[in-house]
């Protein structure tokens, strides 16, 4: 099984998780990579993605596992047939359930004034209020926040839980913007993914299968 790290920026950041699955399927087909197909009525490529990110969040650190017997370096071939904003940056040979393993992500949040207020989120028992299905919900999210740093007045870096029991970065950011009356547009980029404290790249490299 091959694991690829890829980016999802520009208009590719506007593609939903499900649609992105199709887009990656088409990339692999265009590149002529021989991928294993599932059995059954509607055979599909055997692919496994890291946990979904919200529509509109740009990412430099998405991962996909591809069940294939190919072992050669494929990133260049894939990049030659990828749409704008999708770029394959690394490749490993490893057997990992990405969605179940990668459990943290580091984001850069940009919004006027966010840098000055970000550090409160690491306080114990930290709760946020947001709207879910038309209802206002207040929830203790402290167990899903692992780090928060000011970059400058208008930017911050945070590390949050992804996968099961995740914390959506847009939800956190919108809560803070509302709480402190921060106005204007905002932007979120996923910079890196982690398995607990270990960067995902290191974790995958340590689990590589040798030939």
């Amino acid at each position: 099984m091959l694991i690829f790290k890829f980016t999802k920026t520009q208009s590719a950041a506007l593609v939903s998780h499900v649609d992105n699955l199709r887009a990656v399927t088409y990339i692999l087909r265009r590149a002529g990579v021989e991928v294993d197909y599932s059995q059954g009525f509607n055979p599909h490529m055997e692919l496994g993605f890291s946990a979904p990110i919200a529509l509109g969040v740009e990412s430099l650190a998405e991962y996909v596992s591809v069940k294939t017997s190919e072992t050669s370096e494929l990133t260049e071939r894939l990049n030659a047939v990828s749409p704008a904003g999708v770029s394959f940056v690394a490749q490993w040979n490893a057997n990992i359930n990405l969605a179940a393993t990668i459990n943290r992500a580091q984001y850069k949040l940009s919004a006027t004034g966010i840098g000055s207020v970000i550090e409160e989120i690491t306080s114990p028992g930290y709760s946020i209020t947001y709207e879910e299905r038309g209802k206002e919900v207040t929830k203790d999210v402290s167990s899903r926040i692992f780090a928060a740093n000011r970059v400058d007045d208008d930017a911050a870096q945070v590390t949050l839980a992804i996968g099961n029991d995740n914390l959506r970065p847009d939800r956190l950011l919108l809560y803070l913007m509302k709480k402190y009356g921060l106005v204007g547009d905002y932007r979120i980029i996923k910079l890196a993914a982690f398995v607990d404290d270990v960067p995902a790249d290191e974790f995958i490299a340590a689990h590589c299968v040798l030939h």
């Binding site: 919200a54 529509l55 509109g56 969040v57 970065p169 847009d170």
Partner: peptide, 8 residues
Amino acid sequence: MTKLTDSV
């Protein structure tokens, strides 16, 4: 994510 993806 931006205000665009929030409202559209």
